[in-house]
């Protein structure tokens, strides 16, 4: 595997994991624009545990997920009181607060960043990505997944059906935070260097775009969206000048023709019917 290819695959793996963190929340109808904040928490947790305590790699990754999840859980209660655009702003603010804290803490390297001593290969990232994708599909294939989608569609009716919407939303936000933390840990270990400036608003916006353009209706969405957004810019490197222009045009066209995302349930259903031309219980 060439260095370039393995680099692209590692970024792809991290982006896919990151996308599932936002997807799990988005599947319940909550938009999280603070992805970078949770990713930063995971990255710094992983770096510190590895540098200061010399913990083995898999343990540092587990802790970055736990810390990401724990912090998400704590802030889920105030944040989930807000809805729609207000929730987007609240989560955005949280990411800014995290970046602000890191920038102003000398122990964390402040604006100069931090070198991570431990190192992982691309394969590790890919294996974790596969596990997270399977986890995403698994959650959505259960009754919990059904309840999440119900809360997304109509909170009031889901509530009357006996769905504990608060538990579902807090749970999804927490799992999302944990997965974002994990993706941050992988980032830190793969690149060996982290700085607060990397975990900026652009990253949060991009990961939310992966999910929204991929589609929030099925677990395929984040996989397709993250792959699309990671690979298309690489493929467009040939005409470097026009790269971002073409990319922007593609996004606009997508939003016009597939406002619900690339992968929708109806589209999947149609494909399935054509392939097997039979009834299917979904």
């Amino acid at each position: 595997m060439s260095g370039y290819l393995s680099g692209v695959l590692a970024i792809l793996g991290i982006n896919i994991i990151f996308a599932y963190s936002i997807y799990i929340t988005a599947a319940t109808g909550q938009l999280n624009l603070g992805g970078a904040g949770f990713q930063a928490i995971g990255a710094y947790a992983c770096a510190l545990l590895s540098n200061e305590l010399g913990l083995p790699i898999y343990l540092t990754l587990v802790f970055s997920a736990i810390l990401g999840g724990a912090i998400s859980f704590l802030i889920a209660f105030p944040v989930l009181r807000t809805k729609g655009v207000y929730m987007v702003l609240a989560t955005f603010a949280i990411a800014e607060i995290v970046a602000g804290i890191i920038l102003n803490t000398d122990y964390l390297g402040g604006p100069t960043g931090m070198i991570v001593n431990a190192y992982i290969e691309t394969e590790v990232v890919l294996v974790v990505a596969v596990i997270i994708v399977i986890l995403g599909f698994y959650i959505m294939s259960t009754r919990i997944g059904l309840a999440m989608r119900a809360v997304h569609d109509d909170e009031a009716v889901a509530d009357l059906m006996g769905v504990d919407k608060r538990a579902i939303q807090v749970g999804a936000f927490t799992i999302g935070g944990a997965i974002a933390g994990l993706s941050g840990g992988l980032y830190a270990l793969y690149f060996g260097f982290i700085e607060a400036q990397y975990f900026n608003a652009n990253i949060s916006i991009f990961v939310l775009l992966y999910v929204l353009i991929g589609g929030t209706q099925t677990a395929w969405g984040p996989l397709v969206g993250a792959s699309f957004f990671t690979l298309i810019p690489e493929a467009l490197r040939i005409g470097d000048d026009w790269r971002f222009f073409i990319f922007g045009v593609i996004i606009v066209i997508m939003m016009i023709f597939r406002p619900e995302g690339i992968v929708t349930r109806d589209a999947l259903e149609r494909v399935w019917r054509q392939l097997f031309s039979g009834k299917r219980n979904v």
């Binding site: 009754r143 059904l146 309840a147 989608r149 119900a150 997304h152 569609d153 109509d154 009716v157 889901a158 059906m161 006996g162 769905v163 209706q217 349930r265 219980n281 979904v282």
Partner: peptide, 16 residues
Amino acid sequence: MPHLSVLENVMLGQHS
């Protein structure tokens, strides 16, 4: 629920 299938809507009714 507009994004759920007929079967899923009915299954939601069993949730409790």
